[in-house]
Amino acid sequence: MARKTAKKAPVIMKCENMFCAGCGHSIFDRILGEVLTEMNIIQDTIICSDIGCNHQFQYSMAVDVVMPPHGKMGAALTAMKRVRPNKYCLTIAGDGGAYAIGLGETMSAATRDENVTFFVMNNTCYGMTGGQLAPTTQIGQWSSSTPRGRSIEEHGRDFDVVKVMKNLDIAYLARTTITSPSEIDKTKKAVRKALEKQRDGKGFSLVEVLVPCPTNWGMSPVKAMEHIKNELVPRYEMGEIIDK
């Protein structure tokens, strides 16, 4: 059972992060940091930051960053990759940034099959502004702007990136979560695979990660992980959906 190699923070994680206790972003950032370190591509990586809780990776990770307006990562990554095709150009996005205000840019980058990578943290709400309705907020779920819970009549149906992107000619589409060590391993494999697709010039890759927002869900971090396992995972198609 014991691991042979030491497990410690990858060198890219330069200091403590600024996220809330039990936040999914901080776990994902470390996973990404491990992959960038293991692939030895930190010096060749430029991360396009979204605006929202997710942007706080830039305070704790020693990596180059470009931060355009909220949600415009699809456009910015397109330009970044085309002017420096030898760099890995990726974003750590929020579901609000990638699927609401930036849906046009995200979809346009995907339909053009730009050789860039999206990691979208789906926590079913706008975390930084206080847990308002996001496209991904589930039917029946409370949010601070839908105090009676989301209903189809009042707020419309929720957004599922897999349903939207399933038939696109893109290189990689996966949905994972981080609720347990084994799920984290799957996420790490998906992160690596997405970046390998970019390395090999295969085209657009997107990994959606179901992450907890204990603060805005009003749950303890442990309960928030259980909520993902019991409430979100059963509603979603999980795993690798496109792998070309």
Binding site: A2, K7, A9, I27, P181
Partner: peptide
């Protein structure tokens, strides 16, 4: 030394 604590910790508290 299974490493689960390191893997789950959002805040890099653990080093195996």
């Amino acid at each position: 030394q299974c490493g689960n604590c390191y893997t789950m910790c959002p805040d890099l508290v653990f080093e195996i």
